[in-house]
């Protein structure tokens, strides 16, 4: 123990500066960069749904010719990659912290997993009875809808305004896309949804400092 450890801060201003500095450095190191929560998903949506739109364009057309399996495969690979980046990023920041935050994170992650599992069971059951364009719309519209709702729930859990507003935005974008119809939905989700995720990441970054 060094002798000046026991020393009191020189004065009140010094103590305040010490408090601020230590708070900032702790926050910085526990949550390295909020963009890691948003940008992987943003790029996955922008590219994934964008390519989907180019292949399965409105009115059954094809703007860019490519194998029919490619767009969805690409989308799933990008989403999986985003999930890995997101998971590793949060786990690393919160390593060695136990308690209520970890519990919230685990339950929230479970809600995502179970939510998407139940959704895929339901759609898988009815998808064969639908024309291909409507089946595609059902898959993406329900997925984006659930994502929007879970973002709002996340905002409520962590009292995070950016996250809640993003959920509202994604929900609105999804509704507009569905009304516009098959094909258009992918374009709207790619540009407005993916773009919304990127903007939310930039906003969270700015607030984080």
């Amino acid at each position: 123990m060094t002798p000046d450890d026991e020393a009191a801060p020189l004065d009140a201003a010094e103590a305040m500066r010490l408090i601020r500095e230590q708070q900032a450095s702790t926050v910085q190191r526990l949550e390295p960069d909020p963009r890691v929560h948003y940008w992987p998903w943003g790029f996955a949506w922008l590219i994934g749904f964008g390519v989907y739109f180019l292949r399965f364009s409105p009115d059954g057309r094809t703007l860019v010719d490519m194998p029919a399996w490619l767009p969805l495969t690409l989308l799933f690979v990008l989403l999986a990659a985003a999930a890995v980046v997101f998971g590793v990023g949060s786990a690393r920041a919160y390593r060695h912290v136990a308690g209520e935050s970890a519990q919230r994170g685990r339950w929230y992650g479970t809600a995502w997993g179970l939510g998407f599992f139940s959704l895929s069971v339901v759609i898988g059951r009815v998808t064969d009875s639908l024309p291909p364009d409507l089946a595609g719309l059902l898959w993406s519209a329900l997925s984006v809808g659930l994502t929007g709702a879970l973002h709002m729930a996340g905002g409520a859990i962590w009292l995070d305004r950016t996250l809640f507003r993003l959920g509202v935005w994604l929900t609105a974008v999804n509704i507009v896309g569905v009304i516009a119809g098959p094909g258009w939905h992918a374009l709207v989700v790619s540009v407005a949804g993916g773009g919304g995720l990127l903007v939310a990441g930039a906003l969270a970054r700015r607030r984080h400092g």
């Binding site: 009191a8 912290v97 209520e100």
Partner: peptide
Amino acid sequence: IHAQARLRVVVTLATLADGDRITFPR
């Protein structure tokens, strides 16, 4: 609390959410 080293310890622990625990090495 009014000692530089302990003030830093307390600030760090207070920055964690209420109810959270942190490992000693971290």
